[in-house]
Write a protein that binds this DNA or RNA. Sequence first.
DNA 1: TTGTAGGCGTTATCAG
DNA 2: CTGATAACGCCTACAA
Lengths: 333, 333
Amino acid sequence: MTGRVGITLHDVARVAGVSSRTVSRVVNDEGGFSDATRTRVTGVIEQLGYRPNLLARALITKRSGTIGLVGVDITDPFFAELADGVQRSAGKFGKTMFFATSDNDLDRQNAIFETMWSHAVDGVIVFTASGSQEHVLEYAARGLPIVVVDQEMTGPGIGSISSDIIGGALLAVNHLVSVGRKNIAMAANINSAASRIPPRREAGFRSTMEQHSMVGHIAHDTATIEGGRRAVQKLLAQHPGIDGIFAYNDMMALGAMQAIDAAGRRVPDDIAVVGFDDVAICEALVPSLTTIRIDRARLSAEAVAFVQRLVEQPDITHDPIRLDVELIRRASA
Amino acid sequence: MTGRVGITLHDVARVAGVSSRTVSRVVNDEGGFSDATRTRVTGVIEQLGYRPNLLARALITKRSGTIGLVGVDITDPFFAELADGVQRSAGKFGKTMFFATSDNDLDRQNAIFETMWSHAVDGVIVFTASGSQEHVLEYAARGLPIVVVDQEMTGPGIGSISSDIIGGALLAVNHLVSVGRKNIAMAANINSAASRIPPRREAGFRSTMEQHSMVGHIAHDTATIEGGRRAVQKLLAQHPGIDGIFAYNDMMALGAMQAIDAAGRRVPDDIAVVGFDDVAICEALVPSLTTIRIDRARLSAEAVAFVQRLVEQPDITHDPIRLDVELIRRASA
DNA sequence: TTGTAGGCGTTATCAG
DNA sequence: CTGATAACGCCTACAA
C-alpha cells in the first residue's frame, strides 16, 4: 500500500509470455510484431494497468517530453494567459510543462535554466529577465534549446517569437491623436530602460510623436498596477495638461486609470488611456480599456512548435517569428 | 555542438582520480570522505561543469524533486497568484513545479494525474474539477500523494487545505447588511452547484440571510467575468430592487460591476458589491472592490509543505488544514 | 575513508 | 517477426 505500484515492462512481458523488448515495441508502436502479439500485449497492459516510466525512457532517449516556461511575473495576466496557452499547446504535443518565474533576476533565471536542464527538458520558453541575451546564448551553445518570447534573437538552438511592438506603439499613439489628444504622455517600464535591448514601446512612442511634431513626456516605473499609478501621478503633477496616456501594458494602464480617478479627472473625457497586451479584464473594466492586442493563443502555439523545431533541427539557424498586433478600440480612448 | 554535453559522475571521478562512489558522496554531502578529497572533487566538478542528471537519480530514489499543480482555470488571477506561490515555495524545497489545467474536465484531470505520475512527481496539488473526490481517492490509494486545495478531505496519502469559506460568506453578508442593504442577492458558481460537495459559499450565504430573516435570490453561472455579468443581468431583470450583491469570487464580482454599470446603476450607491478571494486587481478597480481575503501566500506554502509531509509519512492520515479569511473593506460596499 | 558490484525501467544493438 | 544483452547515469548495498 506504500509508495508507487510499479508495473514494469518485464511484468507485462512475463504475463504475456513475450520478451520485454517486444512489449516495448508495442508500447511505442514501432512495428515489427504480429497482430496477435499486439492484441495479447495490449490486453495484458490494460489488465495490469501498466504505465511507462517516463524517467527511464528519458534517461536513454535524452528527451523527457517536458517543456520549461520561464516568466518574469505571473501576476501579470498577460503572462498567466500565455502560460495557459503554452500548457495547452504542450499537451497537444504530448508534453508536460514546467513553470517558474525569475522575478527579473538573472541569477534566478540561470538557476532555473540549470534545474530545468537537469530535468532534461526538451526546451525552454523564456521571457528573459531584463532582456539579457548573453546567458541565453551561453545555454543555447551548451545545447539547451531556448525560445525567446518578446525579443528578437537568432542563433543555433535559439528561437524567437516577438510581436510588432513598434507598430503597436504607432497604432496607439495615432489613435490618441485621432481622438483629438494634444498632450500625450507615456507610462513606461523601468526595467526595459535598464535592459540592454532598446525599449521598443518607448522607441515607437517617440518616433510617432515626432511624426506628429509633438513632444511626449515619459515616466518610468515597474510594469505593474502600482507602477502605473505612480508613473501617472508623477506625470500629472509635472504636466497637468496631459490629456492622453499610452501605457507600457494593461497593468500600468489600470494603475493609470486609478491615478486619474484619484486626481479627480475622468477617463476618457479628461484623459484618454491606451494599454498594451489586451488581457482578459480589459473588456470588463469600467470604462473598458482600449489597447493593443497581441494574439496570445498564436504566440504560445508558435512558441511550443518552435521548441519542437529546435529539437529536430538543432544545428541550423531558424528565422525569428514576428506577429502582428491590432488596435482594440473600447471606451477608454 | 549538438545536443546535451553530458558530464557524468564517472567523468568527474576519472579526472579527480577517485571512484564515482566517492564523487556521489561529495555531491550528496553524505560525509565519509576527507577534506582533501572534497576540495579536489568539488574542484573538478566546477572545472568540468558537472550537473547531476536528475532523471537518473529519480529512477533510483523514486522521487524526482518535482511537484505537480493542477488547476481549473489559470485565467482566474486567484489561481495564477496561487501558482506563483506554489512555484516559489517549491523552489525553496529544491523542487520544480509542473503545471496543468483541467478545464473542470474529469477526464482531463485524470490524464494529467497519469502523466505527472509517470514523471514521478513527489506529489500533486490540485483544485479538483467539479470537486470530485473519488478519483483523488483512487490515485491516492495507488500511491500518488495528493493535496486537495479548497476542499476538505482526509485519508492516507491525502492532504487538504481549505479556507473558512462559510465564515467568509458570513462576513460578506453581514457587511452588506451593516451598510444598510435590504435586498441582497448572490452570483453563484454553477459548477459548485453541479459538484458533489455542498457549495459552501452558497450555504454560508443562505444561512446568514436566514439569520437576518431575509430572502436572498441566487443566480448561477460560470465563475468568470462573463458569468458574473450574465448572472447579475438576470438578477437585475427579475428583481430590480436588489441593492447588494455577494459574488462567488472576484471575477464574478467584476462582471457584476460591469452589469450594474450597463444597467445604469452605480456601485456602491445603488448596489453594493462584495467579492471573494482578494486578487491583486481588486484594489485597483474603480471603485475598488470590497472582498474576502484568502491568504494565498500561506495557502501555497502550506500546500507544498503538506506534499512533503505526505511523502515522508505516506501511511498515516493527516489532519486537514483550515485557514481563516478576512473581510477587506474597500469602496464597492 | 574509500571502492566494487548490482540494479532502477527503459530503449538500442545485433543476432536469430 | 522476436529475443538476448548492453547501455543510460545514478544510488544503495556491502566489502575493504
